[in-house]
Structures are given as C-alpha cells and as structure tokens.
C-alpha cells in the first residue's frame, strides 16, 4: 500500500540544461538534505560514545576507547536484563492486544446496522487517541485508585471484599499498560480495517447469503480473508516498533513498588544517560534497541515474503 514508487517513465539524463531547468527543485532538495543530515544522520555519529568512556570535557576525539565494554556491562547488569524483559514483554502484550481489539472492534462495528449508531460509536471511539498520555494516565490513575470506580464496581459485584491497590502489585502492571493502549488506540487503529472492509466486494456477501451463510460464516470466510493483507502489512510495520512501545505510560505510572516490572529500556537510558550523565552507557542501550528493532523488521519482512504476503520493501 502506498509504496508504489515504480514509475516506468524514461530516466531523465543529468545534463547541464536539465540541472538549470530544475534549479528550484535542486536548491530545496539540497536544503532538505542538509537538514536531514544535521537532525537525523549526525546523531548516528554519536554512537561512537558507546565504544568510549565518553567524558564531555574530552569530547569525541579525546575520550578513551573501550571497545565493547559498555555492552558487556549491560548484559551483566541485572537491571538492564530486567528492563529488556519488561520492554519486550509489554511491547508484545501491547502489540497483540491492540491488534486483536482493533480488528474485533472494526468487524463488529461493521455489523451494526443503524447508520447513526455506527457513526456515533465511531466518532466516540476516536476520542481517546487525541488525548495525551498525561491525560490518559491521569484518568487511569483515578479509575484504578483505591477509591476509584473499578474498585467500587468490583466491591459491589462482590468479586473482591477489600479495595485492591492496583499500582502496588507487580502482577497488574503489564495488563494495565495493555489496557491503557487498547483504550487509547482501538478506535483509531480500527479506521484502517474499516476502510479495508468497505472495499470488499458486496457481491461476495450476497452470494454467501444465498448459500445460507450466517453472520459468523460471513465474518470468517469473507471479512477476515478480505482484510488479511491489511492485517499483515500493519503487523509488519508494528513489529519493528515493539521496543519503542515502552516509555510514556511506564514513566508516568511506574512507582517505587513496581519498578522491577515497569521500567523499560527508554527509562533506563533516561536514568543513566540524562540523570546520571553516563552518556556512553545510555547510548549503548539505545543502540541495542535500534539494532534489535531493525533486525525484527527485516525478519518480519522476510517471513512475509516467504508467505507470499505484501511486504514493506
């Protein structure tokens, strides 16, 4: 989708005349390249810090090189191994739960017959996407606090007989984060599936009705296969983001009691790099994250290619 860069127009030769004709384009292209080099490529040069014992006063040129020492330290550091586990765990849990929720929601919303009802539910479903994580975590904190609505409902239903402090038990944290992600993004993520469902040929449904297929059969044999390419490409795009999925909620909702399950790689980088001024260690952890993300994208892409599905590149 959207990546059809192949144009079969004859290649334009680089001639002086053509350059002169395109001077406006070339000038601005150069401006954008300079901008991109500064803001996106130059920081990559900072990766050198991960292989040094970087001291701000010595700079890149005079800091001592230490090879892979920082990486070795990372993998012997219990805290790092824990944050790695947390990042992966929450990343996968979020990915799976938001994915399933969005698909289920899109399919069920599509089955709603009332036009007004459908429109109203959909409009409401987008709302949380536009709220910042600060607002979402604040709301969540209220709802799950000991005097919050969740405890109240559970007490009324006699499921629990004493308020639960959800933010004090390590076991609740990952599900809470997954729920927060689902609450915020289900409606938004469903947009693309709803669009894909709309583009399924209505004749298929009519034919199935004539053959006596019920709703479940239609969902299973027409809707789901119809949106499968969309599901695949979204999955591909998001696999690379698994490690990126852990910062704001964890940073905002984490507390001393549950630190061992809530801290993620990004928080680790922030603590070591910015607060403790150990730039080298922070950078090394950041590089590790980038490299794993790229490997994940390449693997996902390769598997999609093997399975004959759409792929990213």
């Amino acid at each position: 989708m959207a990546r059809n860069t192949k144009t079969n127009a004859p290649a334009v030769k680089i001639t002086w005349k053509e350059v002169k004709r395109q001077k406006f384009l070339l000038f601005w292209a150069a401006v954008f390249v300079i901008y991109g080099v500064i803001f996106y490529y130059l920081p990559l040069g900072g990766w050198i810090m991960a292989f040094q014992n970087y001291k701000p006063k010595d700079g890149f040129l005079h800091s001592k090189f230490v090879g892979f020492d920082k990486f070795i330290f990372l993998f012997q550091d219990d805290t790092f191994l824990k944050v790695l586990r947390n990042t992966l765990g929450m990343g996968i849990l979020n990915l799976v739960s938001t994915f399933i929720m969005a698909i289920v929601f899109a399919i069920l919303l599509n089955e709603v017959r009332s036009k007004i009802g459908k429109k109203a539910v959909q409009t409401i479903s987008y709302l949380p996407h536009f709220l910042s994580w600060i607002i979402v975590t604040g709301i969540l904190h209220d709802a799950l606090s000991t005097s919050g609505i969740v405890n109240e409902v559970l007490m009324k239903l006699n499921i629990i007989d004493k308020e639960v402090n959800f933010f004090a038990h390590p076991g609740f944290f990952w599900p809470i984060v997954a729920f927060a992600n689902c609450w915020k993004e289900t409606g938004w993520n469903a947009i693309i599936y709803l669009a894909a469902i709309t583009s399924i040929d209505p004749c298929l449904y009519e034919a199935a009705s004539i053959d006596g297929a019920g709703r479940w059969a239609k969902i299973r044999y027409i809707t789901l296969p119809g949106i499968k390419p969309t599901i695949m490409i979204l999955l591909l795009m998001n696999v690379g983001n698994v490690l990126n999925a852990g910062f704001e909620v964890q940073y905002l909702l984490g507390n001393g009691l549950i630190k061992s399950v809530s801290d993620t790689i990004d928080i680790y980088v922030l603590t070591w790099g910015i607060s403790q001024n150990d730039y080298s260690l922070g950078t090394a952890a950041g590089i590790f994250k980038s490299v794993v993300s790229i490997i994940l994208i390449v693997i996902a892409n390769y598997m999609a290619k093997r399975a004959g599905e759409e792929r990213l590149f």
């Binding site: 920081p43 990559l44 900072g46 980088v269 790099g273 910015i274 950078t283 590089i287 994208i297």
Partner: peptide, 10 residues
Amino acid sequence: YVNGGMIPVF
C-alpha cells in the same frame, strides 16, 4: 527506521 537515540540527539 534508524535514529540516533535519546542521548546523541540530546
């Protein structure tokens, strides 16, 4: 797909 990360950017 590739970015420098928090510290180098900072």
